[in-house]
């Protein structure tokens, strides 16, 4: 417990002494005399401008400028040479940026060589870049120094550098770099011709859509009328095809030509139809028997005989091919089916 109390006390004392030291430091920094101590003592009659802490009896200053001809915004190497100073290491480098005559230059400080206490001259380097062609000289620089051997009141004589004439020229015009346009090749080929200011793309209006809707049915209806006029039997055939048996029979008759024995195929198709629509007995296979069976089913004699003739024609075509040809056989078979279908 006692140890803890001692530690706390020690900490408090340390904090107090630290605070005191900080306060003294702040007072020292802010007090005017501290500046005097930092920059050296202020002598009575010391100039506030153009005095750079140089001391000596006969100090001279001069500019060294290289080159004398320069382009606008190009650098001149300018060196201030101070000769005859007794305190070479204490001379402060003049800040040309604070001097109004040097506003016509853009000023860059250059690091100076190290100075020693016995040096006969001190050199301060600068880079000055004239802002425009109206600049004709590096201006004179007034330079006060301290001469402790002079009479009271004359201990801060001044000297000055001579102004150095320079020639400032326009910078050479940079060669305009010629750069081609980089773009895809197709961009360089515009569309030409009357289409450029033509009527634009066709956009169908509502009347155009109505016309398209009506066009199909009208054309097809016209086609149907023409078909009925040109093929009246075909129209009848179409009615006949309402019967599935008749449709099958006519399809089979139509395809009979592709069979190895077309007359037999036609005969089979017609017989199949008859057995479906008019249940004739299985025993009726010859043309006469078929005709007779049809008559028994109340088919008019004329139609029954014509149907029998179809089977006779088929038989003739099968066993005496020169007597009939396939086309007429197909036509007569179709006609027979149509006639019977009309009765059914």
């Amino acid at each position: 417990m006692k140890t803890d109390t001692n530690q706390v006390r020690r900490r408090c004392e340390f904090a107090r002494s630290f605070r005191r030291a900080a306060l003294i430091s702040v007072v020292f920094i802010l007090h005017p005399s501290s500046f005097t101590l930092a920059n050296g003592p202020v002598r009575p009659g010391e100039p506030t401008v153009d005095y750079y802490k140089a001391e000596g009896r006969g100090i001279s200053v001069r500019w060294e400028v290289e080159p004398k001809t320069v382009h606008v915004s190009s650098d001149l190497t300018v060196t201030l040479v101070v000769t005859g100073a007794q305190n070479p290491t204490e001379i402060v480098k003049p800040d040309l940026r604070k001097l109004k005559p040097f506003d016509v230059f853009k000023i860059t400080e250059v690091p100076d060589p190290p100075r020693n206490a016995t040096a006969k001259e001190v050199r301060f380097g600068y880079k000055l870049a004239p802002r425009d062609t109206s600049v004709t000289e590096v201006p004179a620089l007034k330079f006060h120094y301290y001469n402790q051997f002079a009479a009271e009141g004359k201990r801060f004589p001044s000297t000055r550098t001579d102004a150095v004439e320079i020639i400032v020229t326009e910078p050479p015009k940079a060669e305009r770099s010629i750069v081609p346009i980089e773009a895809p090749e197709f961009l360089f080929h515009p569309a030409t011709g009357p289409d450029v200011i033509g009527r634009g793309p066709f956009v169908p209006c509502q009347w155009a859509w109505l016309a398209a809707v009506c066009f199909g049915p009208l054309v097809c209806f016209g086609w149907f009328l023409v078909w009925r006029r040109v093929f009246p039997d075909a129209a009848q055939l179409a009615r006949m095809r309402r019967s599935r048996a008749a449709r099958r029979a006519t399809d089979a008759i139509r395809k009979a030509n592709r069979m190895p024995d077309p007359p037999a195929a036609v005969a089979n198709a017609v017989l199949g139809y008859l057995r479906t629509r008019f249940p004739i007995p299985e025993a009726a296979v010859t043309p006469s028997e078929i005709a007779a069976a049809l008559k028994e089913r109340n088919v008019p004699d004329e139609i029954a005989e014509e149907t029998g003739d179809v089977f006779r024609a088929c038989d003739r075509a099968r066993f005496a091919p020169a007597c009939d040809n396939g086309l007429s056989l197909v036509a007569s078979a179709k006609a027979a089916v149509a006639r019977l279908e009309a009765l059914a």
């Binding site: 066009f215 054309v219 209806f221 149907f224 095809r241």
Partner: peptide, 15 residues
């Protein structure tokens, strides 16, 4: 639309 109508007509013709 024309082909659809034509199909209907053809059906009417051939069943």
């Amino acid at each position: 639309w024309l082909l659809a109508c034509a199909g209907v007509v053809r059906f009417a013709m051939t069943r």
